[in-house]
Nucleic acid binder design. Structure first.
Lengths: 201, 201
DNA sequence: CATAACTATAGTCATTTGTACACTAGCTCC
DNA sequence: GGAGCTAGTGTACAAATGACTATAGTTATG
C-alpha cells in the first residue's frame, strides 16, 4: 500500500530514525546526525540513503536547506479515524466496496479494533438509534446477553440487534415494537456497539 | 489556560507562521525565512521574537542548530476537541464549573464555535436523544423554525428543545409526548444542535 | 518623567550543514 | 565481464544559518 516494502533494511532504519526525530523532537535530523546514529563516518554515506529514499518516494527534500526532510507518507498523522465499513440495515449488511472512507471521532472513539457502520432503517429506533446514524462497533466474536451487536446469520445477512441466546436458538431482538424478533440457529457476532454518532443538518 | 494569551500580536503572528510551516511543510522555518515573511530586514529582528517566544514557553530551541524549533504546546494537536460546557436538562443548564473538560470528536465535529453538552433527562427522547448523550452545539444567536436549540429563558434557565417562534410568544417544544411545550415571551438562543454522540458500555 | 518591554535596522562572525568529488567493495542480473 | 544498485570512507568547499553587538524608535507602565 505505501510502497515502503521496497526499502532495504538499512534504508528503512534510516527512514524510521527520521520519522522518530520528527515525531518526538519536532524537527528532523541533519545528515551528520543520521551519520552519527548509524556509525556512518562520512556524510556522503547518508546522502546515498537520502537520495535512495527520495527516489523511492518515502521523503521529499529541498536542496541546500538544512533539516529540510519532508515525510511523504506522514503515516502517523493520517491514520486517525475509524474505517467506515458500510451500512447495516435491518436486513443485509452492505459492506462498503471502498474501505478508504473513514470517520474521525477523535479520542472519544479510537482503537485498532473499532470500526463504524452507517445505520439503515428504524429497527433500533427505541434504542435511540435512527436511520442515518453511525454506530461505532468494537470487533469481537462474543457478547453478553442483551448487548447490542452486529450479527451475521448463516445466509450471510448482517443486522443490528440485541443479542439474546436462548436454549436452542438465538433471538435477535429489534428495538422497535412494530417489528418481531428474528430467531436463528446460528449467528456470528461481528462486534458489539459501543457508540452512536449522529450528524444533524 | 495555555498561556499563549500573553503573546503580543506580533509574536503570535510569528508563532502561527512557525506552526503553519511545521504542519504544512513538515519542517520549521529558518530565522531568515521568518524575516522575509514578515518583511523584517534583519535576522536579529526575528531573534528577538524567538527569544520572547522561548521565554514565554511557546517554543523550545536548541542553540546553534538550524530550524531547531520545537513547539511546546503543540497546540494544533492538543487543542483538538470541544469544550464540554456542562449539562443541559429539561430544566436548568448546569454550566460546568471547570471548563477544562473536553471531548475530542475528531474531524466529524470540530470548529471554534462548537461545544458539547451532556444531556440530562428524557425531554428529547423521541428525537432519539437520551439521558447521558452528548449534544454538539454550534454557537449562534438565531435559528430557523423547528430546529433543535439550546435556549435560555428570562429566568436564566436553559433547555434543549425544538424552536417554534409564534405570534406573541415562543414555543419550546420537547420531543416527548408525555411533556407539554413551554411558552415564553423571550428566549435567547445559545446555539443549534448539530450532532449527537452516545457512548455505550 | 523614567524605565521597561517590544520591535526593528545594519552588519559581522562562527558554526552548521548540504553537496560534490574521488575511490572502494559487495551483490545481482543479463 | 560489465552495468546497476547498495553501502560505504575521506576530504573539501560553499552556502545556509544562528548568534552577536551596537543602535534606536515606539508604546506602556509606574
Amino acid at each position: 500500500m505505501n510502497g515502503l516494502k521496497s526499502l532495504t533494511e538499512r534504508q528503512a532504519a534510516v527512514y524510521n530514525f527520521i520519522v522518530e526525530k520528527i515525531q518526538n523532537r519536532g524537527y528532523g535530523p541533519t545528515v551528520r546526525e543520521i551519520a552519527e546514529e548509524f556509525g556512518i563516518r562520512s556524510p556522503n554515506g547518508v546522502m546515498c540513503h537520502l537520495k535512495a529514499l527520495e527516489k523511492k518516494g518515502a521523503i521529499r527534500r529541498s536542496p541546500h536547506k538544512s533539516r529540510a526532510i519532508e515525510l511523504v507518507h506522514d503515516s502517523v498523522q493520517r491514520e486517525r479515524g475509524l474505517v467506515l465499513a458500510g451500512r447495516v440495515a435491518a436486513g443485509v449488511l452492505h459492506e462498503a466496496v471502498e474501505q478508504n472512507e473513514r470517520i474521525d471521532l477523535g479520542d472519544m472513539f479510537h482503537g485498532p479494533n473499532l470500526f463504524a457502520l452507517e445505520v439503515s432503517g428504524d429497527s433500533m429506533i427505541e434504542a435511540q438509534i435512527a436511520d442515518g446514524d453511525y454506530v461505532v462497533v468494537r470487533e469481537q466474536p462474543t457478547a453478553r446477553i442483551g448487548e447490542m451487536v452486529v450479527a451475521e446469520t448463516d445466509d450471510g445477512d448482517a443486522t443490528l440487534k440485541y443479542w439474546y441466546p436462548e436454549k436452542n436458538r438465538i433471538r435477535l431482538q429489534p428495538a422497535n415494537s412494530s417489528m418481531r424478533p428474528i430467531y436463528v440457529q446460528n449467528a456470528r457476532i461481528r462486534g458489539v456497539i459501543v457508540g452512536v454518532v449522529r450528524k444533524i443538518g
